[in-house]
Design a protein around this nucleic acid. Structure first.
Lengths: 189, 189
DNA sequence: TGATTTGCCTAGGACCTCTAGGTAAGCCTA
DNA sequence: TAGGCTTACCTAGAGGTCCTAGGCAAATCA
């Protein structure tokens, strides 16, 4: 019998692809084992349990998302950076629905600290360099931006915007305009 | 043998309470059957399957949430209405974590249309009566508000704001100030 | 009171999770 | 290259969830 050459990394990668195909909630140890042509029990020497697998997937997705966003921001600042960030964030969610769902997993504080979850706040903060904001306003603004991006993408995916004919794309542009406006006006709030 | 007197409504109610106790993802047909002291097979004369149960739970939660929000808005308008809406929304999510998670379920368009999902957009629109907004700006603003509320609550629950000492409550107040400001400035955007 | 409906039952198959313990492939050293 | 070690994958099996088919008895109605 030839070995399949499994490692935790390969399993996590395959789990991520599987999540995008069949949905995050359908990422099971059995399905993953089938994909590699091995018995499900074989996976338990690489991952602790099903939850562990999903956490690894979440950490992978968070890192990928942070990379994409970082690349999109590049040297931009101000509204350019805002639009680039938001676009990259939303594009990732669209291209990788399963991975994006994974990023919403509640991670225990330890894992969250180690993972790229912290980089997101940092990257969001980078947007604000183009605006005249200082603590604690910066943190409040970061939370507003993060909330709005996540909320919009999340509701869009849930189909919450289908009830109205107004284009989702057009609203998105206007929402970014609004956010830019509020960031510029923030000092005077 | 005395009968348990099950109905789809009682099952849905109990499922909602169960969701708040043990988390939405742990609402299973078996657990619900155990709660009523019956066999799990007995539930299938009242609900079609596990997914159907969760959909009913989602519809229940959406209706409850809409009621709470509607009551909170009352006769208010403008920023008063905004703050009341947001407060009621967030309070519901805190008091009923399982139910709130259920509201995030992807419902098929048919169910969504029948359920209270549509009332939310309506209620959000009611906030805007105090601001000088007309279509299509109204729809864009509704989407911004809904996204931000949902995103904030969702990230707060996921612990995404724990990494920074700035109080979640203080940021929330500022975020509402920012939204009020952007709604007032919208016509000039 | 007998007939019908309906609520809950048993039985059982399919799938997923996870543990314990075994075998053999691949690597290291002598 | 033969021995031994590590480790990748195995079988077996227990326990849980989902769901269907078919049966019996309680409640309801004629």
């Amino acid at each position: 019998m030839a070995r399949a050459g499994l490692t935790a990394e390969r399993l996590t990668q395959a789990a991520a692809d599987l999540a995008d195909e069949v949905g995050f909630e359908n990422v099971t140890v059995s399905a993953l084992a089938r994909h590699f042509g091995v018995k499900d029990a074989s996976l338990y020497s690489h991952i602790r349990n099903a939850h562990d697998l999903r956490v690894r997937l979440a950490v992978l997705a968070l890192a990928e998302l942070a990379d994409r966003v970082a690349a999109a921001i590049g040297g931009r600042s101000g509204k350019d950076a805002l639009v680039a960030f938001a676009g990259a964030y939303r594009a990732y969610a669209r291209e990788h629905p399963g991975r994006y769902t994974a990023t919403q997993m509640a991670l225990d504080p330890d894992t969250a600290a180690t993972s790229a979850a912290g980089r997101h706040a940092e990257l969001t903060r980078a947007i604000l360099r183009g605006y005249d904001l200082w603590e604690p306003d910066q943190t409040d603004a970061v939370r507003l931006l993060h909330s709005t991006f996540h909320g919009y993408v999340s509701l869009e995916r849930a189909g919450a915007f289908h009830s109205h004919p107004r284009g989702v794309e057009a609203s998105w542009t206007r929402v970014l305009d609004a956010l830019d406006s509020v960031l510029r006006a923030w000092p005077a709030l």
